[in-house]
Design a protein around this nucleic acid. Structure first.
Length: 873
RNA sequence: GCGGGCGUGGCGGAAUUGGUAGACGCAGGGGACUCAAAAUCCCCCGUCCUCACGGAUAUGUCGGUUCGAGUCCGACCGCCCGCACCA
C-alpha cells in the first residue's frame, strides 16, 4: 500500500492549468442549458486579498461548481471595484499615481485569486476605473438625466477649513478633520442627485417579492425607506410674523398627542431659524454650533439634546387659549419631514428629555386607565399605543388610531390663511442619492457648465470623459479642479469657453450595475438586452452584511432606472442574497502596547492556559478577538496560508465549523485540522483505489449487510450535502463529509485484515466516487487528484452530480426516545409500520417507564410519529 | 441615539425548525504501533453525586406558554453590524 503524502504545491497549479487549458469555466451566452448566475461582491483592490475574500469567494465557488455539476450554464465572473478614496490617500502618502497603485494592486490580487482555484470566467473581468467600463456609466448617467431621474440641488458636506477640502464622514473624528485636526464646518454645495426617492414606494413594496433574501436585510431596508403616515400641521405664529412668515409647518406621525404638545422645534437650517438668526446673534451662534456636529446621523443623534428658545410662540391649533414656545433644536433634521416638529414630552423619550432639560410642562394624553392618567409616564412600560386618550378635549376616550383620525379630520376642516390647517401625508425617510464627490479617483460626471446654456450633457460622440493622468496631489482639494486644460473646454452648444464638471461620481454608482455589465462585458453599449435579460437577476449573490442597506438599495434603484431608460427589462437585480459573516482573529500586544501580527509571535498551551511569546522569549498579551484589520495587525495573509497548506486547506477551513452567516475565528489549530483532513482523505482514496473494484465493473445484483450499510451511508451523505449546499449551509456539508469519511475509513481499516467481498468492493468504489464529488466543490484540486487516482473519467470539475438512490435513504425500523413527563427515560425500537396503539402498548411495558411513573396513573401518552413518545403521569 | 442581529461544553459549532441538547471538528487525557519521535489507528471527554448501574443539573439572566422550550412570548444583560461622503 502506498502512503505517499498529497502535495498541494505540486497538484494545485497543475489542475488550475488543466481547467484553464480546457476552458472549463468559460461561459457562453448562447448555451441552451438553464442559466445560473452566481456572484460574489467584487473586491476593492486594496493591495492584497484577505481572509474575508477567501471565505466569500470559496462560498460562491461551491455554489457555482455544484450548479455546474447539476447541469446549469453557470455565469461566475469577477472584477474590481477600483475607484475610491484609498487610492488617493496612497497617492498623497507614497507619491504614487492612483491609477498605477490601483492596477498594480489588481495584478497582485488577480494572481492571489487565481491561486485559490476558483471556477471563474476570467474572460469577463472588468475594472470600474477603466474607461471601457466607466464610459458606459457616463452614458447611463446621461440617459437617466434625460429620463428625469437626475436632479441638481444643494446639499451639505463636511468642509475642512485648514486642508481646504471636503471630508468623508469617516474622515471626521469627533467633529474634526482626521489630518488637520481642524473643526469641521458644514458647507452647502450644488450637487448631482439620483432621484431614488421617486421609487420609495416601489422599492418598499417589491421587498415582499424577494423571498430568497434574509428577512433581516429586508427589514433593514424597510426601516431605511421608512414609510410613515402622518399629518402636516401648520401652526400660526402668535401675534407677529418674521420676515413675512406667519406660520410653521410641522410633520407628525402622532397627531393624537397634539393636546400634550409642549413646544415646537425647528432644525438649525430651517428657513425660519435662518431668518431669525439675522436679528439674533445668539441663535446664529447656536445654529452654527449645530452645524459643526458634521453630517453623520450617528454623530447628530448621539450629541446631547440642545435647544435654543427663539422667543417666538405659536398658537395651539386645537386650543385657542394656548400658545407654545418655539425652539431651534439640534436633533431636528431639515432633511426629514418639514424640518420642524411639535414635541409631546409625555409620549416620546427624546421630547421628554428635552422638556425636562428646559423645564417645559409634561402632560399625559394617552393612558391605559384612570389610575395612571395623571402619572408622569415611564417609557419602558408605557401603554402609548394601546391606551385611550385623556386630557384631550374632544378626543377623550378614543383609541390612538381613532384620535389620529379625529385630529386629521378636524384640522383638514379648519382653515388657516386660505388653506386647511392639516393635511394627511405619506412620508418616506429615504432621501435622494447624492452622487457628487469632490475627488479625482472616480468616474467623471459627463457635464459641461456654460454660462449661457447651464449644465450641458457631454455629447455621446465625445464619451468617455476620461480622467487626465497628469495630476498631482501637492495642492489640497480636487486635482481635477485645478487642471487647466482638462477643466476648460468649449460649450458643446455654443462653443464659447465653458468648464467641465470637476466632481466625480460616488463609487456606489460603479457597483450599482457591474452585475449587469458582466453579462456582456465587452459590448459597445452598457448592456446588450438579449444578454442582460437572459442572465439577470443574479440567482445567488453573496457578500458582507455591511452592504445590507446602501449598496443593495442603490443597485435595486439602478436596475429600475436602467429599465426606464431601456437598458434592461428586469426590476430586481438579485433574486437570491446571502450575507456572510466576517473573519476574525485574536489580537496581540507587546509590553509597550504595540500591536503584533500572528506571524511575529508564538502561542503555547499549558494546562489550558494559552500564552503568547515573542521569539526572544518576552511574553505578549493576548487581546480580544476582533475583525481582521491592518490597524490591529491581526491579519493572516492568504498567500502565506496557501503556500504552507494549499488553497484547498484554506478553502475547507473557511467553510467548516462556523455557519457562513456568522463570524469565523481564524485559528492556527483550525487550519492544521483542515490540512490533516486533506491527507486523511488522500489516504482513504488510495486505500479505496486498492480495495475497490475497477471503474466500469457491473453493479452486483445483491449486497450483503456490510456493503448495504456503506451504500446507505454514502447516499445519505450525498443527500444531506446536496440539501445543505442549496441552503448554503457549508459547515453542515463539512460535518456530513467528516461523518461519512469516518464510516468509509472504518470499512477500509477492516479491509486491511479481511479482503472485501465483490459486493463490498463495488460499494467501496461507489463510496469513493461519491465522497470525491462531495468534496470537489470545496477542495477542487484535491478532488481532481483523487478522481484520477480511482480512475475517474475526465475531470471532476466537468462530471455530473451523482444521483441519490432514494431506496437507500429509508430504514425499516424507528428508534423512539421515550420520555416520562418530558424527561427521557428510555429508547424503543419498533418496526416502521408500527401503529400508535402498538407503540403505546410497548411503552407501557418498559421497566424504565414503570419505575419512573411510580404509583401515579398514566394520564395520557403522546406519540409523535417518527419522532418521540412522551408518557404524561 | 435610532434600526438590525447574535448569545449552547475548554473552543468553533450541531440539534430534522416545538420532540433524545452537545452531531462533526479543534484542544485535552489514556492506549496501540515505534529503539525513539512524528504520522497513523483505537478508546475517553459539559458539570455535580455514584466503584458502578444510575441520578441530578445544564443552552447569557429572570419570568411565561406547552405533554414537551436551545427553539415561541415578555423583560433584562452582554457583544457585533449599519446610520446616507469607507467600501
Amino acid at each position: 500500500m502506498t502512503t505517499e503524502r498529497y502535495d498541494a504545491r505540486d497538484a494545485e497549479p497543475k489542475w488550475q492549468k488543466a481547467w484553464a487549458d480546457r476552458g472549463t469555466f468559460a461561459t457562453k451566452n448562447d448555451d441552451p442549458r438553464p442559466k445560473y448566475y452566481v456572484l460574489e461582491m467584487f473586491p476593492y483592490p486594496s493591495g492584497r486579498i484577505h481572509m474575508g475574500h477567501v471565505r466569500n469567494y470559496a462560498m460562491g465557488d461551491v455554489v457555482a461548481r455544484v450548479k455546474r455539476a447539476k447541469g446549469f450554464n453557470v455565469l461566475h465572473p469577477m472584477g474590481w471595484d477600483a475607484f475610491g478614496l484609498p487610492a488617493e490617500n496612497a497617492a498623497m502618502q507614497n507619491k504614487v499615481h492612483p491609477r498605477e497603485w490601483t492596477y498594480s494592486n489588481i495584478a497582485t490580487m488577480r494572481d492571489q485569486l487565481k491561486s485559490m482555484g476558483l471556477s471563474l470566467d476570467w474572460n469577463r473581468e472588468v475594472a470600474t476605473c477603466d474607461p471601457s467600463y466607466y464610459r458606459h456609466q457616463q452614458r447611463l448617467f446621461l440617459d437617466f438625466l434625460k429620463a428625469g431621474l437626475v436632479d441638481r440641488k444643494q446639499s451639505k458636506v463636511n468642509w475642512d477649513p485648514v486642508d481646504q477640502t471636503v471630508l468623508a464622514n469617516e474622515q471626521v473624528v469627533d467633529g474634526r478633520g482626521w489630518r488637520s485636526g481642524a473643526l469641521v464646518e458644514l458647507r452647502e454645495l450644488t450637487q448631482w442627485f439620483f432621484k431614488i426617492s421617486d421609487f420609495s414606494n416601489e422599492l418598499l413594496s417589491a421587498l415582499d417579492t424577494l423571498d430568497r433574501w434574509p428577512d433581516k436585510v429586508r427589514l433593514m431596508q424597510k426601516n431605511w425607506i421608512g414609510r410613515s403616515e402622518g399629518l402636516h400641521v401648520r401652526f400660526a405664529l402668535a401675534g407677529r410674523s418674521v420676515h413675512g412668515v406667519s406660520e410653521i409647518e410641522v410633520y407628525t406621525t402622532r397627531p393624537d398627542t397634539l393636546f400634550g404638545a409642549a413646544f415646537v422645534a425647528m432644525a438649525a437650517d430651517h428657513p425660519l431659524t435662518r431668518a431669525l438668526s439675522e436679528d439674533d446673534p445668539k441663535l446664529a451662534a447656536f445654529a452654527e454650533d449645530c452645524r459643526r456636529t458634521g453630517t453623520s446621523a450617528a454623530a447628530i443623534e448621539t450629541a446631547e439634546k440642545q435647544g435654543y428658545d427663539t422667543g417666538l410662540r405659536v398658537a395651539h391649533p386645537l386650543d385657542p387659549e394656548q400658545t407654545l414656545p418655539v425652539y431651534a433644536a439640534n436633533f431636528v433634521l431639515m432633511e426629514y419631514g418639514t424640518g420642524a416638529i411639535f414635541g409631546c414630552p409625555a409620549h416620546d423619550q427624546r421630547d421628554f428629555e428635552f422638556a425636562t432639560k428646559y423645564h417645559l410642562p409634561i402632560k399625559r394624553v394617552v393612558a391605559s386607565g384612570p389610575e395612571d392618567a395623571d402619572q408622569v409616564p415611564m417609557f419602558e412600560a408605557d401603554p402609548a399605543e394601546d391606551g385611550r386618550l385623556v386630557h384631550s378635549d374632544f378626543l377623550n376616550g378614543l383609541t390612538v388610531p381613532e384620535a389620529k383620525d379625529a385630529v386629521a379630520r378636524q384640522l383638514e376642516s379648519q382653515s388657516l390663511g386660505n388653506a386647511p390647517q392639516g393635511k394627511r401625508q405619506v412620508n418616506y425617510r429615504l432621501r435622494d442619492w447624492g452622487i457628487s464627490r469632490q475627488r479625482y479617483w472616480g468616474c467623471p460626471i459627463p457635464i459641461i457648465h456654460c454660462e449661457e446654456h447651464g449644465a450641458v450633457p457631454v455629447p455621446n460622440d465625445q464619451l468617455p470623459v476620461t480622467l487626465p493622468d497628469d495630476i498631482t496631489f501637492d495642492r489640497p482639494g480636487n486635482p481635477l479642479d485645478h487642471h487647466p486644460t482638462w477643466k476648460n473646454v468649449p460649450c458643446p452648444v455654443c462653443g464659447k469657453p465653458a468648464r467641465r464638471e470637476t466632481d466625480t461620481m460616488d463609487t456606489f454608482v460603479d457597483s450599482s450595475w457591474y452585475f449587469a455589465r458582466f453579462t456582456d462585458p465587452k459590448a459597445d453599449a452598457p448592456t446588450v438586452r438579449s444578454a442582460v435579460d437572459h442572465w439577470l437577476p443574479v440567482d445567488q449573490y453573496i457578500g458582507g452584511i455591511e452592504h445590507a442597506i446602501l449598496h443593495l438599495l442603490y443597485s435595486r434603484f439602478f436596475t429600475r432606472a436602467m429599465k426606464v431608460t431601456g437598458h434592461t427589462s428586469v426590476d430586481e437585480p438579485f433574486a437570491g442574497l446571502f450575507t456572510q459573516g466576517m473573519v476574525v482573529h485574536e489580537t496581540y500586544k507587546d509590553a509597550a502596547g504595540q500591536w503584533l501580527s500572528p506571524a511575529e509571535i508564538r502561542v503555547t498551551e499549558d494546562g489550558g492556559a494559552r500564552k503568547a511569546f515573542l521569539p526572544d522569549g518576552r511574553e505578549v498579551e493576548i487581546g480580544p478577538i476582533e475583525k481582521m484589520s491592518k490597524s490591529k495587525k491581526n491579519t493572516v495573509d492568504p498567500t502565506d496560508i496557501i503556500q504552507t497548506y494549499g488553497a484547498d486547506t484554506a478553502r475547507w477551513f473557511m467553510l467548516s465549523d462556523s455557519p457562513p452567516e456568522r463570524d469565523v475565528i481564524w485559528t492556527e489549530a483550525g487550519v492544521e485540522g483542515a490540512g490533516r483532513f486533506v491527507q486523511r482523505l488522500w489516504r482513504i482514496i488510495q486505500d479505496a483505489s486498492a480495495f475497490g473494484t475497477p471503474v466500469g465493473t457491473a453493479k452486483p445484483a445483491e449486497f450483503g449487510p456490510e456493503a448495504h450499510a456503506l451504500r446507505q451511508a454514502a447516499h445519505k451523505a450525498l443527500n444531506a450535502v446536496s440539501e445543505d449546499v442549496d441552503r448554503l449551509r457549508f459547515n453542515r456539508c463539512v460535518a456530513h463529509i467528516y461523518d461519512f469519511s469516518n464510516t468509509l475509513g472504518a470499512v477500509l481499516q477492516n479491509a486491511r485484515t479481511k479482503t472485501p467481498t465483490p459486493d463490498l468492493a463495488w460499494a467501496i468504489r461507489e463510496a469513493a466516487g461519491i465522497i470525491i464529488q462531495l468534496v470537489a466543490p470545496m477542495m477542487p484540486h484535491l478532488a481532481e487528484e483523487c478522481w484520477a487516482e480511482i480512475g475517474g473519467q475526465g475531470l471532476v470539475a466537468e462530471a455530473a452530480w451523482p444521483e441519490v438512490e432514494p431506496a437507500l435513504l429509508v430504514s425499516d425500523s424507528v428508534t423512539y426516545p421515550v420520555q416520562v413527563n418530558g424527561k427521557k427515560r428510555d429508547e424503543l425500537t419498533v418496526a416502521l409500520s408500527a401503529s400508535t396503539e402498538e407503540i403505546e402498548a410497548e411503552v407501557r411495558k418498559l421497566d424504565s417507564v414503570i419505575r419512573a411513573i411510580g404509583d401515579k396513573p398514566i394520564r395520557k401518552i403522546v406519540v409523535v410519529p417518527q419522532r418521540i413518545v412522551n408518557v404524561v403521569a
